[in-house]
Simulated scan of single mutants.
Amino acid sequence: MKTLLTLSAFAGGLLLIACNKDDNDNLSPDEKILSSKVWKIQSLTTKSTVNPEQDSSIMKDCINAATIHLYTGMSFDLKDNSTAGCDSTVFGFDKGTWSFNETTDSLYLDGTKRDVAMKVSTLADTMVVATYRDNVSPTNNRVKTITLKKK
């Protein structure tokens, strides 16, 4: 009887270990970097209309509170954490699913409101820099550069 009880306990323990698989195991190294933390927007720029050789900041104070969380389950949440709400024509807050293509260094956000494809130029443990064509406003469709830092 003791042997049967011991075998049952051992089998139950193995079952629990097998079911406790980390979502992180299936992610690439770059996806692990992206999903291992909450990101904060450090800067948001576009080419200056006066001098296209220079970048111009389009950050609003309220965007400083915004966060981007890329979850290991491949969902994302771009949150407006400001107290009064932030103008979403500068940066589109959304949620949905995400993916990363290591061949093209592209981060894709498939949101409920809009889709965004970003070309990642810097991917490090503490910072991500990417460019994307903004589709928030059909009349103001510009290339923007976003810099994210670890929160």
Rank of each mutant, 00 (worst) to 15 (best):
C19K: 09
T6F: 00
L44F: 12
N101I: 01
N51V: 09
I17C: 04
N101P: 05
D80Y: 12
D30N: 14
A11V: 11
S8N: 04
P29A: 04
I17E: 03
S137D: 15
H69P: 00
Y108C: 05
Q54P: 02
D77G: 02
W39E: 05
F91G: 10
A65N: 12
K144H: 11
S43Q: 11
I63T: 04
S121W: 09
M1H: 01
L70Q: 11
N26K: 12
D125P: 07
S106N: 12
L27F: 06
R133K: 14
L34K: 08
V143E: 14
N81S: 09
E31N: 02
T6A: 12
L78K: 08
N64K: 14
H69F: 09
M1G: 10
I33H: 08
T97K: 11
L7V: 05
G92E: 07
M74Q: 14
K37S: 15
K119T: 05
K113D: 11
K79W: 04
T3Y: 10
K144T: 09
T3H: 03
Y71P: 07
A84V: 07
E102G: 08
D125Y: 09
D23P: 14
K2T: 04
S99G: 14
V120A: 04
E31V: 01
L4C: 01
S8Y: 01
I41A: 11
D25Y: 13
R142M: 11
G96R: 05
S137R: 15
P138E: 09
D87L: 05
